[in-house]
Amino acid sequence: MRIPATRVLILAFCAAACGPRDAGSGAERAERAERADSAIAGADSAVVVRELTLGDRGCYLQVEAGGVRREEIGAMELCERADLVGRTVRLGRAPGAVPAMSCQGDPECAQSDTVMLVHRVDVVP
């Protein structure tokens, strides 16, 4: 079987680009992963609360940072904090149980999912 030269070049390029790299020590990899997780979740950054909406699984917080909006899920009681809307805050998260998606809003459903819930909101002075 003969492989056209174009395919050989593509395969060689992919192997070089996608091949193993020196990723550093385990501690360096863990530190990079932690920084990436923090950046994605916005764990260390202040956000502005734009909206609070009570849902079937928790309180949905619409937050904004750097002109980008995202949604976070928090403990139900956070939706009682209308004073947070428009305020700059830092969010505290922890694993928590919420009704499972498969429950589809049924309050009698006993199934749950574990997610990272916003459980603390600290107003930034």
Rank of each mutant, 00 (worst) to 15 (best):
M1Y: 07
R2W: 06
R2Q: 11
R2G: 07
R2D: 12
P4T: 00
P4N: 12
A5C: 05
A5F: 03
T6S: 09
T6H: 03
V8K: 11
I10T: 04
L11Q: 05
A12N: 10
C14E: 02
G19A: 10
P20M: 09
R21Y: 08
D22C: 11
G24S: 06
S25N: 09
G26D: 12
A27Y: 06
E31Y: 08
R32G: 04
A33P: 04
A33N: 09
R35F: 06
D37R: 15
S38V: 09
A41E: 15
A46L: 10
A46D: 14
R50Y: 08
L52M: 08
L52Y: 05
L54H: 11
G55Q: 13
G55H: 06
D56V: 09
R57G: 04
G58S: 03
C59M: 04
Q62V: 13
V63H: 04
V63M: 09
V63N: 04
V63Q: 01
E64S: 15
G66Y: 02
G67L: 11
R69T: 14
R69A: 14
A75Q: 11
M76A: 12
M76P: 12
E77Y: 13
E77F: 13
L78Y: 05
C79E: 01
A82C: 05
D83L: 02
D83N: 07
V85K: 10
V85R: 10
G86Q: 07
V89D: 01
L91N: 03
L91Q: 00
L91D: 00
A94S: 13
A97Y: 02
A97C: 01
V98E: 02
V98K: 01
C103G: 04
G105I: 04
G105W: 03
E108H: 11
E108L: 10
E108W: 06
C109G: 04
A110K: 13
A110H: 10
Q111K: 14
S112P: 00
D113M: 11
H119S: 12
R120G: 01
V121N: 00
V121D: 00
D122C: 05
D122K: 12
V123K: 08
V123C: 03
V123D: 05
V123Y: 05
P125K: 07
